[in-house]
Amino acid sequence: MSPDTRHRRPPSDEAVTPMADADLAARLVVDAGSLARRLREDGLDVRHKTSVSDVVTEADNAAEHQITALLATHRPDDGVLGEEGTLVPGRHERRWVVDPVDGTYNFVNGSDYWCSAVAVTGPDDYLLGAVHRPVTGDTFVGGSDVPTRRNGVPVARLAPGDLAAGSLATYLHPPFFADPDLADPFHRVSRGAATIRMLGSGSVDLASVACGVHTVWCQHSCPEWDWLPGRALVEGAGGVCATVEVNGYDWFVAGRPGAVDQAVALLRG
């Protein structure tokens, strides 16, 4: 590639296709996740945010910077919202949402259950997401205009399911069990599943839902970076997503058709 080609301004948003977004999104999460993993292997300084399990490291910040730098080169007109504080106003409706390390507590403690995740939104309900798990090497990409695939291979379309016969991936921060407005709906939906999984990375959970491993995922009060990348994957696999308010809190639900309706009904009581 010549220097003139390498530094040429990227095409305008009218020329950007869903597949071009998918390819870029995959590159963003693979590069960011690989960087974070290397930094973990070199040793990390950990800072607590709101609790002992809510942490941030220099890997989170470095990975977010890497993603935003690539977006500035390849999508200079798009907005960017990052978990670690990046906020870039866009020149139109397209915006990238960035979670450089989702599951940071797992990341810090040596678990493989973490990922890098991004999503891009646009006009007409356009949504595309990508999730990369560096330790396993799995990359998931999909959304409204791109059927979800894992490592380049399309996943099976999600058939209707029954929550009572399947697994529920979810999370409730332990101190919140003392709040009945959160604990009661959590207990109702949990008891409605055959089994529950609380593993600590919403985007990895949602990628697993998109692949048919879990029947439903739900969690309350999700910021966009914890919801949109995985939601895109689930919808791109033929799944259903919903948001429901219960006791003043928003619950985010995704999974197999039919099972999501069951979960929503249980949350509502």
Rank of each mutant, 00 (worst) to 15 (best):
V135Y: 00
T136W: 14
G137R: 00
G137E: 06
D138L: 14
D138Q: 13
T139S: 09
T139Y: 01
F140W: 14
F140A: 13
F140M: 05
F140G: 02
V141E: 03
G142A: 07
G142H: 01
G142Y: 01
G142R: 00
G143W: 00
S144I: 12
D145R: 15
V146G: 06
R149D: 01
R149F: 02
N151M: 03
N151L: 05
G152A: 03
G152V: 02
V153E: 06
V153Y: 05
P154G: 13
P154C: 05
V155E: 08
V155Y: 11
A156Q: 12
A156R: 14
A159T: 13
A159F: 11
P160M: 06
G161M: 09
G161S: 12
D162S: 13
L163H: 01
A164E: 05
A164M: 08
A164R: 07
A164Y: 04
A165Y: 06
A165S: 07
G166H: 02
S167W: 15
S167K: 15
A169E: 12
A169H: 14
Y171Q: 09
Y171W: 14
Y171F: 14
Y171T: 03
L172D: 11
L172C: 14
L172P: 12
H173M: 01
H173N: 00
H173D: 00
P174I: 10
P175M: 12
F176L: 15
F177T: 13
F177E: 10
A178H: 12
A178C: 08
D179V: 04
D179H: 06
P180C: 04
P180L: 05
D181V: 10
D181T: 13
L182A: 14
L182Q: 13
A183W: 13
D184C: 11
D184R: 11
D184E: 14
D184G: 07
P185M: 02
F186A: 13
H187N: 08
R188W: 04
V189R: 01
V189T: 05
V189M: 04
S190N: 02
R191H: 06
G192D: 03
A193Y: 08
A194I: 03
A194G: 08
A194N: 06
T195G: 09
T195H: 15
T195S: 13
T195V: 15
R197L: 14
M198T: 15
L199A: 15
G200H: 10
S201W: 06
S201K: 05
G202R: 05
S203H: 10
V204K: 10
V204S: 11
D205S: 09
D205I: 05
D205N: 11
L206H: 02
A207I: 07
A207Q: 07
S208G: 15
V209G: 06
V209L: 08
A210S: 08
A210H: 04
C211T: 09
V213C: 00
V213I: 03
H214T: 01
T215A: 12
T215V: 02
